[in-house]
Design a binder for these strands. Structure first.
Length: 586
RNA sequence: GCGCCCGUAGCUCAGUUGGAUAGAGCAACGGACUUCUAAUCCGUAGGUCAGAGGUUCGAAUCCUCUCGGGCGUACCA
């Protein structure tokens, strides 16, 4: 690390690793602006990894993408660019290929030097628009209901995005927007007085609250009068009735305590927990504001926002005829709060795809208000079970705590056959890390937009493209590193030998990590990252199975061990960004 | 009815400025452990990218239509 002190502004600057794709883009851009000064198409320039070694290491299709604008043959453009490229320290040669691809071959020396810097210097992400804060709304369980696999996606998606944004240098606020206000509390209060089993409640708060909630739903079908009672209790709560307020606070507290256990098991944390109730007091102001600005109007005794036909949205009720507020109202109030209390870069809502119309409505309303907030709904497909939608009331949920327990149980079984000599304590620790890893990876490796049917064997698989596979690869490397500790012939600064396709492939893959992170962040799709890590692990395992590492002597031994260290670093860093930990043996 | 999402190998799915021969995992079949952890690796087989048209140098990707599936459709969240 090099520290440079300046006179005017006192700060230190570390030497940062440049991202290869960006460096190449800069080199090409220099040449392109020189040859085609009028061409304002820098955004069309993308350098990407080739999918086949015969096409070089990286490539660009820039000539084809601008051929029409320049009105020249793409091959001519490509050749002109290649001929005018200034010599530099990273490109060995460029080839024109096919209809107008430019294939780029890197210098081995550059690649070797570059890889050696991995885990020594951090990458330079300073070109990203990082001003302000990224606010991420995720997890958001409903009070008094157990967290089930349906909450998994929002929770770990949000957590992963939070980690990735932070790693890229953004300031992030993770907000658990809990469902702690609304109609279910009227029902719960009625059910609490009628059916609560106090012993059960003491033993397991949420299980009992869930039971009486389901009972209420069933009883109300037979006896609609219960719904009226629930509405009355809700009204009392909203009007500040002391007894109902006390009960409500109790429900919230016991629920949060319970969720906290699951969050700890999953290694999930939040920066703020501000549920719907937090915004309750400001909701009347929101309604008034929208009425004053003539954005909302009174229709059939309710306060409603209508949208132009082109937006294809249903009217949005922001206050019911009985005076109660709704989900949309609280989201508007929440946005108002964020506008006033944060310097917003972007707001992300990690909520399932069925709520897409709701967010369109809310975003349309704040646009009418002239609030300049970059808000984005990050939708994901929902999880069903045997084709049915998971629902607390229907009672077909799989609780997160049960899923976690089953995962740990299954991992233990494998450890006992593979590594029975490990201590019980270590077995437990490994089982926990690997079990959680399997669950998180199973979900994150799926494209978030697709819905899927929950399947125990699929979610808890340990072979193939799974979390345990990546953790296993990491553990294998750690084993090599342990065994190399006593070696005296290790040269940490040795050149990396890139003579075989196996070694070169793996090394090239190592360099892609920072760009993959950017891509993952931009599309908000963690499966981009899982896919990359899986490929990296596969390439490592190919090397591991086809060539000796610690059985070699230096310089080959040193070169391969350095590759191992760097691979382990990327695997660990990548897995940690997915919220998955690693173990040194398993 | 209208709106949104989806249809890719036997199964589950990747595939985001439109790029070269559409890829993985699982399952199947054949092979590699007295050798750095076989939760691994190597190989074989498997495709009308739902169908039809269009846009162009080039389409799984963009546009139109048809068929099939899921979800949503103002006073729940």
């Amino acid at each position: 690390m090099v520290r440079v002190y300046y006179n005017t502004t006192i700060y230190f600057r570390r030497t940062l690793m440049q991202i290869i794709e960006k460096t190449l883009e800069n080199i090409f851009l220099q040449t392109i602006t020189k040859i085609y000064p009028k061409l304002n198409s820098a955004e069309k320039l993308f350098i990407q990894k080739t999918h086949n070694q015969k096409f070089g290491d990286f490539q660009t299709n820039f000539p084809m993408s601008v051929a029409k604008i320049i009105q020249e043959n793409p091959r001519t453009i490509g050749q002109t660019i290649i001929d005018n490229l200034e010599t530099n320290h990273l490109i060995a040669k460029c080839e024109l290929a096919g209809p107008g691809f430019i294939n780029i071959f890197l210098k081995n020396q550059f690649l070797s030097d570059h890889i050696k810097q991995i885990d020594i210097q951090p990458w330079d992400f300073s070109f990203l628009p990082r001003a302000g804060q990224i606010i991420i709304d995720y997890s958001s369980p409903n009070i008094a209901k157990p967290m089930h696999v349906g909450h998994l996606r929002s929770t770990i998606l949000g957590d992963t995005l939070k980690r990735i944004y932070r790693y890229l240098g953004y300031e992030v606020v993770g907000d658990n927007h809990i469902g702690d206000w609304g109609t279910q509390f009227g029902k719960l209060i009625v059910a609490y007085h009628k059916w609560l089993d106090k012993d059960n409640y003491k033993k397991h708060h949420i299980t009992e609250l869930e039971r009486i909630y389901i009972k209420f739903a069933n009883e109300a079908k037979k006896n609609p009068e219960l719904d009226d009672q629930a509405r009355a209790e809700l009204k009392k709560l909203q009007d500040g009735d002391p007894e109902n307020t006390r009960l409500w606070k109790e429900f919230v507290k016991v629920s949060l305590d319970e969720y906290e256990k699951t969050y700890q098991e999953l290694d999930i944390s939040f920066d703020t927990v501000q549920g719907e109730s937090f915004y309750h007091n400001s909701m009347p102001d929101m309604v008034k504001l929208l009425l004053d600005k003539k954005i909302a109007q009174i229709d059939q005794e309710a306060v409603v926002v209508f949208f132009p036909e082109s937006e294809n949205l249903h009217p949005c009720v922001i206050q019911k005829k009985d005076g109660a507020f709704l989900y949309a109202t609280s989201d508007i109030a929440c946005l108002n709060f964020r506008k006033n209390n944060y310097k917003v870069n972007k707001i992300l809502y990690i909520v399932d795809e069925r709520q897409q119309p709701h967010f369109k409505q809310v975003f349309s309303i704040i646009k009418k208000l002239g609030w300049n907030l970059d808000s984005e709904h990050i939708p994901f497909g929902f999880i069903s079970f045997s084709g049915a939608i998971l629902s607390t009331r229907a009672g077909n949920v799989i609780k997160l705590e049960d899923l976690i327990a089953e995962a740990i149980k299954r991992v233990k079984k494998v450890i006992n056959t593979k590594n029975p000599q490990l201590s019980t304590e270590e077995k437990n620790q490994i089982a926990h890390v690997v079990g959680i890893g399997a669950i998180k990876y199973a979900d994150l490796s799926q494209n978030r937009t697709s819905s899927y049917d929950f399947d125990w064997n699929r979610m808890l698989a340990f072979d193939g493209n799974t979390g345990p596979y990546l953790q296993y690869t990491y553990a294998r490397i750690q084993s090599l590193i342990r065994k190399s500790k006593t070696r005296t012939d290790f040269e940490p600064t040795a050149n990396i030998i890139l003579d075989t396709d196996t070694e070169k492939n793996l090394c090239l893959n190592l360099t892609l990590f920072p760009q993959v992170l950017i891509k993952t962040m931009e599309a908000h799709k963690p499966n981009t990252l899982t896919e990359y890590l899986f490929e990296l692990a596969q390439k490592f395992n190919t090397l591991y199975n086809s060539m000796p590492i610690i059985k070699e002597t230096s310089p080959v031994f040193s070169s391969r061990l350095i590759i191992c260290q760097k691979t382990a670093f990327i695997l660990k860093t990548g897995l940690n960004l997915l919220g998955i930990n690693v173990v040194d043996r398993m």
